[in-house]
Amino acid sequence: MSFQVGEPMATAFSKLTSENVGNQIAISVCGEVISRSTVLSPIYGGGLALAGLEWERAREITEILSGRRLCN
């Protein structure tokens, strides 16, 4: 699953990853951690990719992030 975030989130994510190289960060949606990874290098430009999600869960997350669905 890959997606692009716009400003100001892209700048905030670049800052977060720049300050946490070598550390683990978690991405959560609706209070549920959906990805936990070690930052290997700063991520610039707002592009994100998540692996290991089942198709249905990826679709739900996409709908929430795009604003087409609310958190339960």
Rank of each mutant, 00 (worst) to 15 (best):
Q4V: 05
L50D: 04
G6M: 10
R57L: 10
I61F: 09
Y44I: 09
G31L: 07
R68V: 06
S37C: 00
Y44A: 13
I61G: 09
L40G: 14
M9I: 12
L40H: 10
G22Y: 00
G31V: 06
S66R: 14
P8G: 00
G45E: 01
E63C: 03
L70M: 13
G22W: 05
I25K: 02
G45P: 00
C30V: 07
R36P: 00
C71E: 00
C30A: 07
G47Q: 14
A51P: 01
G67F: 14
E7H: 04
G31F: 04
G22D: 03
G6P: 00
I61E: 03
S35V: 03
S2F: 07
F13H: 09
L40P: 09
A26Y: 05
A12C: 04
C30R: 04
P42T: 10
A26W: 00
I25P: 01
L65I: 09
E32D: 11
E7R: 03
P42L: 07
G52S: 01
I64R: 14
S37N: 04
E56K: 13
G22L: 00
L16Q: 09
I43W: 03
W55E: 14
E60K: 13
G67V: 09
I64T: 07
E32K: 15
S35C: 07
L53A: 09
I25V: 15
M1P: 08
G22Q: 00
L50Q: 08
R36G: 08
P42H: 04
L48G: 00
S28I: 02
C30G: 02
S37G: 00
A58Y: 06
L48D: 02
L70V: 13
C30H: 05
G45V: 03
E54Q: 15
R36Y: 01
I64P: 02
A58I: 05
V5H: 12
A26Q: 12
E63Y: 04
T62K: 12
T11Y: 05
K15T: 13
R36M: 13
A10H: 06
Q4E: 12
G22C: 02
R57M: 10
S41A: 15
S66Q: 12
V33F: 08
L65F: 10
G31W: 02
L48R: 03
R68H: 11
A49V: 13
T62W: 10
G22T: 01
E19L: 08
C71F: 09
I27G: 11
L16N: 08
S14T: 13
N20L: 11
R36D: 09
F3Q: 03
E32F: 11
P42M: 07
M1T: 08
V39A: 00
I34D: 11
E63K: 05
A49L: 13
G6K: 13
R36H: 05
S14Y: 13
L16R: 12
Q4A: 06
N23W: 08
M9A: 15
S2W: 03
S66H: 08
V39D: 02
N72W: 11
S28W: 04
K15N: 12
T62A: 14
T38N: 06
P8M: 00
L50A: 12
A26R: 12
V5L: 11
R68W: 07
R36I: 08
S41K: 15
C30T: 06
N23H: 13
